[in-house]
Design a protein around this nucleic acid. Structure first.
Lengths: 103, 103
DNA sequence: TTGATATATCGAGAACTCTCGATATATTGA
DNA sequence: TCAATATATCGAGAGTTCTCGATATATCAA
């Protein structure tokens, strides 16, 4: 039994925690939709709210969470705030999710 | 505004929900660890429990959840139940997570 | 300055997930 | 059959996340 496990690669707890945290951020329909839209360019909060059929305040909160994890960045131009993808890894992750999670 | 959105690809709700559900299942440190271990072969519940430093009953529940979503399958041999990866997409997804979620 | 538009934040309650101990079931060997 | 081992299920309480309405802030144009 110990022989079997001696050969097994066990990833460090810290790495596992980090990845689980990253997945948790993505594991929400509205956030997934927002990120999929942002794969196609930069959009304003109210545009994202409308396209994801979510109230502006909820959209803001989802955007804040995504931005807080370094996945998005934002820029205000006039009274409008535009969000875009900030993490270089995000497009790869999303396209992989689309392939492997039946999207 | 409508011009911009007319060109945007909006994935069907159903697909988004399904993918979010799939990510939610993976978005737990113990389940992520279990799946990473099972990438290296078939293991018994008590082995997985020990390697993931989780009680057997909790390990069972995580395994049940993963199996319930079609990600794992199990086979009893004697009093031991062995779990392995059942979903063909899972290895690709995991390796992508390892690349893009800093694992 | 005022009103309109756009975004952001806060607090409370609902809903969901996690964890744990207790208990149940299954299998084997004495 | 009985005890031991292995796995599975259940219910309660703790902890999180989600959602919503209310409110705050920021910017612009009249």
């Amino acid at each position: 039994m110990n022989d079997v496990k001696a050969e097994i690669e066990l990833l460090p707890d810290e790495m596992i925690e980090k990845a689980a945290e990253c997945l948790k951020v993505m594991a929400h329909p509205v956030r997934l939709r927002i990120v999929n839209i942002l794969m196609q360019g930069e959009f304003a909060v109210h545009e994202l709210a409308e396209m994801s059929k979510t109230s502006p305040n909820q959209t803001c909160e989802h955007l804040r969470l995504l931005k807080g994890h370094g996945l998005l960045s934002s820029e205000r131009r006039g009274r409008t705030v535009y969000y875009k993808i900030a993490s270089p890894q995000l497009p790869g992750l999303i396209s992989c999710i689309r392939t492997n999670c039946q999207i």
